[in-house]
């Protein structure tokens, strides 16, 4: 992974204007929800980067901007040397071939009137494949990669004949049939039963191993991120608060928010003694952000200097960055913030 990163994201911003109805006429000051606020990231070739955070953190928006389902407000995203908003015909086509997305709900992403074959063959046809024999063979291959075996059993099935796990495999097969370079997976297993989740996760891991696929794995579930990702970026209110190798971040989180998030994950181990950090669980105001660190209103370790925080990432340990102005060992619980409850 020493060569140039596949994806470089620089100062990415996405602001949504807030509509205030009639008041807009009298108040010229525009307000925005800063869904993604100045984030920079790189993803190396063959790397799986996990993007974590709660609802409203901007993780899904980031994923959608990378696949151009949404337009960015400002910033730069470069994929393999080409800016993704290259609007030449050739540039657009290359982008559509190289970047694919898998969504959360396998019940809604497949066209109910298309067979599995039609669904997977469609991208091939759009990208100029004409030879029917070749298309058939490629679809067959994709089904085999997806462990939808024997493929002849599935080729002419409709989505309603398939289970949730099988549908998600079809959706992934459609995503990889053009051999993309980059895949964005937004909560791809959260709708699936536990016993089949592992299959999909292993499949994604296998795609990286066998095809060298680079991935952005967007999820709120830290346990699956830990299992599948190399690095993790934790987002809070549009900012990246912590970034680093998954094993480090999830064994020794540095940013207070990551610590809180980690402590809230239920653990299926009766012998595990957990340090519970209880904080205010209300979703913060996304329009009137606090001065300085955005986690101030909920942070159990807050101090006076936190209002000077600029969310700059500090490399406190090799490869592990935190946006907190304090090192982890200097964090002390602020007594005013202790919530007295089990």
């Amino acid at each position: 992974m020493d060569e140039k990163p596949l994806i470089i994201i620089e100062n990415l911003k996405k602001y949504y204007p807030v509509r205030k109805g009639i008041r807009e006429l009298f108040n010229t000051k525009k307000e925005f929800v800063k869904a993604v606020d100045d984030i920079s990231l790189t993803i190396s070739r063959g790397e799986i980067l996990g993007l974590a955070g709660e609802s409203g953190s901007g993780k899904t928006t980031t994923g959608e901007i990378i696949v151009r389902l949404q337009e960015k407000t400002s910033g730069e995203i470069v994929l393999d040397g080409h800016p993704i908003d290259d609007s030449s015909r050739e540039g657009r086509k290359r982008f559509r071939r190289e970047v694919q997305m898998i969504f959360q709900d396998p019940y809604e992403t497949l066209n109910p009137r298309s067979t599995v074959f039609e669904t997977i063959a469609e991208p091939l046809k759009i990208h100029g494949w004409k030879d029917k024999e070749k298309i058939y063979r490629r679809v067959w291959e994709a089904l085999e990669i997806e462990e939808l075996k024997p493929p002849e059993q599935y080729l002419f099935s409709y989505p309603h004949e398939l289970s949730g796990g099988q549908r998600q495999r079809v959706a992934i097969a459609r995503g990889i049939v053009l051999e993309p370079k980059f895949l964005v997976a937004d909560e791809p297993v959260s709708m699936l039963d536990v016993s089949i989740r592992a299959d999909i996760l292993n499949l994604l891991k296998g795609l990286r191993r066998d095809m060298g696929l680079t991935m952005l794995y967007v999820s709120h579930d830290l346990s699956t991120i830990k299992y599948i990702c190399d690095r993790i970026a934790v987002m809070y209110l549009g900012k990246i608060v912590e970034l680093g190798p998954v094993n480090k971040v999830l064994s020794k989180p540095m940013h207070p928010y990551t610590k809180v998030l980690f402590s809230a994950v239920p653990v299926a181990d009766p012998d595990h003694v957990k340090e519970r950090i209880v904080i205010d669980d209300e979703v913060p105001d996304q329009i009137n952000l606090p001065v300085g660190c955005r986690f101030i209103p909920r942070c159990p370790y807050v101090k006076d200097q936190c209002s000077s925080c600029t969310h700059e990432l500090f490399e406190y340990a090799p490869g592990q960055f935190s946006a907190c102005i304090y090192r982890e060992e200097n964090l002390t619980v602020n007594d005013d913030r202790i919530i007295d409850e089990p």
């Binding site: 016993s195 592992a198 346990s223 999830l250």
Partner: peptide
């Protein structure tokens, strides 16, 4: 089988194994 399929955040996981079939 269920225990194999379940990622636990505090443990180093070698490999998750799913239960085949439906």
């Amino acid at each position: 089988g269920l225990q194999n399929a379940f990622p636990i955040i505090t443990e180093e996981m070698e490999e998750l194994i799913s239960i085949p079939g439906s």
